[in-house]
Structures are given as C-alpha cells and as structure tokens.
Simulated scan of single mutants.
Amino acid sequence: MSTAELTLSVDVAAPPAAIFAAMTDWKRQSEWMLGTSVSVVSGTGSSVGSELVAVTYGVRDRMRITRWDPPHVVSVLHLGRVVRGTGDFAVRGSSFVWSERLSVPFFFPVVRPVFLAGLRYSLRRFARFAEGYR
C-alpha cells in the first residue's frame, strides 16, 4: 500500500452554513456524488463518534466522524479494508474543500485520473446542489 493525498475544491454561491448543511446531508449525497450512497450506521451522523457507510460503485467505505465543527469542517477516519486513511470536508469562505489522505492499493496510479475526474464532476454537482439546498 502507498499513500495518496488529494485536495480539491469548488466555489459555491451560498453562505457557509448552507454549504455545511448540504455537505453533511449524508442521505442526499447520492444526489451529487457519482455512484455513491451514504447511510448513518451509528450515532446521529452529526457528532464525533458517529459512523457512516458510503458505497461507491460497490466499494464499501465505513467512516467514523472524528471532528464535527459546524459550519467549518467534518473530519473522518476511513475504517474499511479497501479505503483507509483520513478525510476532511471543509467550508472555507464560499468554497467546499475535499481533502483525503488515503492508503491506496498498488494500482491506484492507473485509476487516479478517472477517480479525480469523477470527483471534480461530483464537486461541480455539489455546488449546484448546495446553491439550491433546502
């Protein structure tokens, strides 16, 4: 396993509190994140210690919230067999910033360009989602 660090951001025409609310609406994440569904499996989903499971194209990613600081940041610890590491979902001004530090399999350099393209596309969808979030 090697380590991959990823940081991407998107500008959002919405106030920080709205961006934060949209990014932490786990049940609706499938509306903007390609091929992903998220469910809260332990806790409230809005507190340290809560656990989430994201399934992206069949890959299960169990996460524990390690920091909950509205409307600024949510940090997670990835607990899965395939996805391990840490992630931060942050609001900086009027931007949504997605950062991950992951242990990745040996083949990740081959799929990285497609993974990043999908993530960039999803972040653009997130901006539209957050701008109209209710």
Rank of each mutant, 00 (worst) to 15 (best):
123 L>P: 06
86 T>M: 03
130 A>G: 00
126 F>Q: 04
57 Y>N: 14
80 G>W: 02
64 R>C: 10
83 V>K: 00
47 S>K: 09
124 R>V: 14
6 L>I: 15
105 P>G: 07
133 Y>W: 12
37 S>D: 09
107 F>V: 14
91 V>N: 10
74 V>E: 03
102 L>Q: 07
133 Y>I: 05
104 V>D: 01
16 P>Y: 00
53 V>F: 01
8 L>P: 06
3 T>Q: 13
34 L>A: 13
129 F>M: 12
99 S>R: 02
81 R>S: 13
55 V>H: 09
19 I>W: 03
2 S>M: 15
65 I>Y: 14
85 G>V: 02
10 V>H: 01
77 L>M: 10
31 E>Q: 14
103 S>N: 14
58 G>C: 13
72 H>C: 07
42 S>A: 15
55 V>P: 09
5 E>P: 01
94 S>T: 14
77 L>N: 10
101 R>Y: 00
11 D>V: 12
28 R>P: 09
132 G>I: 03
43 G>S: 01
79 L>I: 01
93 G>M: 03
124 R>G: 10
16 P>W: 01
96 F>M: 14
42 S>Q: 14
42 S>M: 10
7 T>G: 04
10 V>K: 06
107 F>P: 01
82 V>P: 00
110 V>R: 10
82 V>S: 05
38 V>Y: 06
102 L>T: 02
48 V>S: 10
35 G>R: 12
63 M>L: 14
58 G>Y: 13
60 R>D: 09
33 M>V: 14
42 S>V: 04
40 V>K: 02
116 L>M: 12
106 F>E: 11
51 E>L: 00
39 S>L: 05
52 L>W: 02
91 V>E: 07
82 V>I: 13
1 M>Y: 11
33 M>K: 15
24 T>C: 04
106 F>C: 11
11 D>P: 11
17 A>K: 02
111 V>K: 05
45 G>K: 02
134 R>Q: 15
91 V>G: 08
122 S>E: 05
71 P>E: 10
83 V>F: 03
2 S>A: 15
